[in-house]
């Protein structure tokens, strides 16, 4: 049995009067790939964003790598160890691809510029974009930008990665190049939590699939269980609409 890297108990999140998460319990083991699916507005992105405190939980507890997330002091420590990939890439437009990658390792990890560059170039090579090191983000396609964003997160050598609908803003023909990178990451044993609408990816790469609706985890299990034998009616409904 592997250790739990992320432990979430009784997590609640309210935006004003609206309760988006109504008590979530979730453990993610080391090297596990957890895929979160569910209708839009169900709270799945909020759940992901609570893990690295981009959203401050209204209640409950989030423990990452043994560190409880409850004060500013710990937040940066935890964020160093968890990479995040956003739907809209969020690359830094005033920097080249290489500069995007080396900034945080230099400022946060204290890496020397040469080390950071070496690491960055290795990672760019891994996502197939070594020749774009000196380009600016705006000259890249959406799929390329997202691969750079993944490389940027990896450059911090995180122990886990969070993906917030990483392919939702992409043109259909670019989705696979991003999913391929994520597949190879999973194969290398990266701990991953992925919010996505790509059911093929969820089925193939996920160790565990969660169906979130109305602020609850309604159903969870292996991809086989959730996709082929959903127990809950709402899961069946959701799957019938998108599959």
């Amino acid at each position: 049995m592997k250790n739990d890297f992320i432990k979430i108990t009784g997590l609640r999140k309210c935006f004003g009067d609206l309760e988006v998460l109504k008590g979530i319990d979730l453990n993610v083991a080391e090297q596990e790939v957890v895929v979160i699916i569910g209708p839009s507005g169900s709270g799945k992105s909020t759940l992901l964003r609570c893990i690295n405190y981009l959203e401050e939980p209204s209640g409950g507890e989030v423990v990452v790598d043994g560190i409880p997330l409850n004060g500013e002091a710990h937040i940066n420590e935890v964020r160093k160890e968890i990479g995040m990939v956003f739907q809209r890439f969020n690359l830094f437009p005033h920097m080249t691809v290489l500069e995007n990658l080396i900034l945080a390792p230099m400022k946060v990890r204290g890496l020397h510029k040469d080390e950071a560059k070496k690491l960055a170039l290795e990672l760019l090579d891994k996502v197939g974009l070594a020749e774009k090191a000196d380009s600016y983000p705006e000259s890249l396609s959406g799929g390329q930008q997202q691969r750079v964003a993944i490389a940027r997160a990896l450059c911090m050598k995180p122990k886990a990665m969070l993906f917030d609908e990483p392919t939702s803003a992409l043109d259909p023909e670019m989705i696979n190049e991003v999913l391929d990178v994520m597949r190879s990451l999973a194969k290398d044993g990266m701990t991953m939590v992925v919010v996505t609408h790509e059911m093929g990816f969820a089925r193939e790469v996920g160790d565990r699939v969660l169906f979130v609706d109305g602020g609850h985890i309604l159903e969870e299990g292996t991809p086989e269980e959730v996709f082929n034998h959903p127990k809950e009616e709402r899961t069946q409904n959701f799957l019938s609409k998108i599959l």
């Binding site: 690295n52 981009l54 940066n76 420590e77 964020r79 160093k80 968890i82 990479g83 995040m84 956003f86 809209r88 969020n90 690359l91 830094f92 900034l103 945080a104 400022k107 946060v108 940027r152 997160a153 911090m156």
Partner: peptide, 12 residues
């Protein structure tokens, strides 16, 4: 998203 990207990389 720029602030979020920076913060999620561990920068203050």
């Amino acid at each position: 998203g720029q602030m979020e990207a920076g913060r999620s990389l561990g920068m203050s």
